[in-house]
Amino acid sequence: MSLKRLTKKTEFYVALILIAFCLIIQVRSGQFFTPNNIVDLLRSLTIPMMFAVGEMMVLISGGVDCSFPAIASLAMYFVCTKLDGVFSNPIPYFLIAMALGLLMGAVNGFIVAKYRFPAMIVTLGASSLWIGVMQGILGSSEYPLTSALYQLGQAKILTGTNAETGFSSNLPVHFGFAVVLVLIGWFILNKTMLGRGIFAIGGDEVAAARAGFNVFGTRMFIFCFSGAMAGFIGVCRASMMMTVNPNNMIGMEMDVIAACVLGGVSLVGGKGSVLGAVLGTALMTLVANSLILLGIPTVWSRVFTGLIIIIGTGVSAVQEKNRKNTLHVAVSDQ
């Protein structure tokens, strides 16, 4: 890709900001490029990055999914409390949670695809429903993690140790899952007809239908995929934290959506990339995790998240506006 084409991409600027941010933190604290800090960051990136892949697909198709933390929490809480100790292998837990997530995603997909309601309102409603089922019917207290998943939680890829301070952090095996999931997302979006369909219906639904894409089926797939992934991620989260906490994923949806949009995924659909979603998530995670290294008190972290969302989305919104204006001028000149 030529440099000129590169500089037109949002991903390029996000990567630049990301690098600049890393350098600033390094200069201010001297603690950024230490093995344990990098491993810590990758560790905190794991869950949001996986969520971002599912959310990105929904956004590209022109929808939005606010219900994945609720789906993840309910699926995870169900398998971890109701099937505690039933299996000695972690795989059935993942599969059952994915099946539950898929069912819940299918409800979203059906309502959005059949009635054409705004996906945000539908998924907010569904979110409230699933959280209610979890907290009201299953209970919402912390619960010890079943041993099969506990053992998985202890498995690590590598350990980063800071030679000076002696602090060390482990990179759990779940980071590997996240990488695989990102690759699957990339493959579906870029190498399959389904992926073309997702872009097509996000760009123009009517045109996509005329071109022969199955709009209903594609929408159903996206929400089912997002739901099944949420189930998987929920169990990942529990096994990474080594405890079953039903409430600590709730509220993540907004940060994930913002991260995707920061990475150049369009909120009105038709545009976006896996790389962008990952970079956007990395930027959000970096900001949230590095304020201490910059000497900023943690009470400010929400203000900074808000500023990042507003500035990041503001810049791309203004760009979009200018592009449209120049387009109008070009047309009216002819």
């Binding site: 907004m254 913002a258 009470v299 400010w300 972290s301 507003i310 989305t313 919104a317 203004v318 506006k321």
Partner: peptide, 29 residues
């Protein structure tokens, strides 16, 4: 933010949600 900059309402108010909440936390500790 919505009409001047053209940020979609959902994101603009999501950002200000974080901002208002954040300032609330900062002011009350």
């Amino acid at each position: 933010l919505i009409s001047g900059l053209g940020i979609p309402a959902m994101l603009a108010t999501l950002g200000t949600q974080s901002l208002f909440w954040g300032f609330g936390v900062v002011l009350t500790g």
